[in-house]
Design a protein around this nucleic acid. Structure first.
Lengths: 206, 206
DNA sequence: CCTTGCGTTTACCGACTGGTCAACTAGACT
DNA sequence: AGTCTAGTTGACCAGTCGGTAAACGCAAGG
């Protein structure tokens, strides 16, 4: 029952709830501390500053997201189609849950923060990019498994396709956040199926 | 040589340059006015406040974007493939030009602002959504033309496909902004071709 | 008992935020 | 000349920003 990390964890929890549904710039340390039940000064005992607090929070979120959403869905039962359906379902559930809890639909925190802070906080942007790269790598692993299983053409450029997958997923989550409607994810999900499960012509047509 | 609208236009120009490459929250009226060469108080003679200034600026940007990029590309010569290539090329050129001029790659201003202000400024978000809806409608018109011309299957659900097109485009521009690299657009553009120019299965497989 | 040091508290800082306001200028109209 | 008004100006406002620092509480260890 070490109280040492209680405040630290409370700060990260508060930061997560606020920064996901609002934005980096519009969340102040005053709001974070109030929500965490911690005095302002204490924040600076655990973190050098706001930027580091947010980076640590999203680092934890990425770890959680990988372990609880990405891995289970993309390594789950069935073929690529079933795994993608599980993936979309898990994302949708998470977004809907956040919207119910916080009143706001977060979209993809890594993408949103990378965009917002891309021109202001290089450290934060690099951290987000790292997470996006890691997610893309897991997409690719799922595609490689589908190739190995014969579901996708052996000549499939899985790196390229994973790149497209991530871009489309970011677009879907951006639209969902813009519309503040979790069902947008379900509405656009078929695009993912179309992109990943149809045979692609080899380069440009003559 | 009416000086009446000089300040107003200067404010909008400055706002465009700043808000596209940074973000709504991180741009202050002080910076806008300094860049526009206008005193702070004058801003409030032309606009009720920052929010209205930004809305007006993006309204003008949308008009310009439609007239100079969207319409020429999507109604240009050739079939859907050529028009899409022109569209991608125009977007890429615009992003690269902005990056050269401002040092920052903007991505899609409407999408970025819709995401950032979605939870804070309902008016701004609704304005951005309106622009996104209008863009989507123009995508659909281009797809309808392709159907009429026999390039796409007559059974194609063009509304749905335009929806997917916009989502993917937003994702591509988000990735480009996150990476601050215009070539990301060219790298991901083939996904658009794959999404729009391959035959799609009618719904889910049995 | 007394020190050590982690965690906490609180008052405070300068910089900056968007926005207000009354005074002022200059050109157009009477 | 006198008036009117669109436009301009700079001082000013209350509030918030992220961050600092000194003092304090308190449990562990000598």
């Amino acid at each position: 029952m070490n109280t040492t990390d209680n405040s630290r964890q409370a700060l990260m929890d508060a930061t997560r709830g606020l920064v996901l549904t609002r934005s980096y710039g519009s969340v102040g340390i005053a709001g974070i501390c109030e929500r965490a039940g911690v005095r302002r000064g204490s924040l600076y005992h655990f973190f050098p500053g706001k930027e580091d607090l947010v980076i640590a929070t999203l680092e934890a979120l990425y770890t959680e997201f990988t372990a609880e959403v990405l891995e289970p869905a993309l390594r789950g039962p069935g073929g690529l189609r079933e795994r993608m359906a599980a993936f979309v379902g898990a994302i949708h559930a998470f977004q809907a849950r956040m919207q119910a809890a916080e009143g706001r639909l977060p979209g993809c925190p890594f993408g949103s923060l990378a965009v917002e802070t891309g021109t202001q906080s290089p450290r934060l942007r690099e951290a987000m990019q790292g997470h996006l790269d890691a997610i893309r790598a897991q997409f690719r692993a799922a595609l490689d498994a589908a190739v190995a299983h014969g579901e996708l053409d052996a000549r499939t450029d899985t790196a390229r396709l994973a790149d497209h997958w991530l871009a489309l997923m970011e677009g879907i989550l951006l639209m969902a956040r813009a519309e503040q409607d979790a069902d947008t994810i379900l509405r656009l999900a078929p695009a993912l199926q179309d992109l990943l499960l149809t045979t692609h012509p080899d380069g440009d047509a003559p």
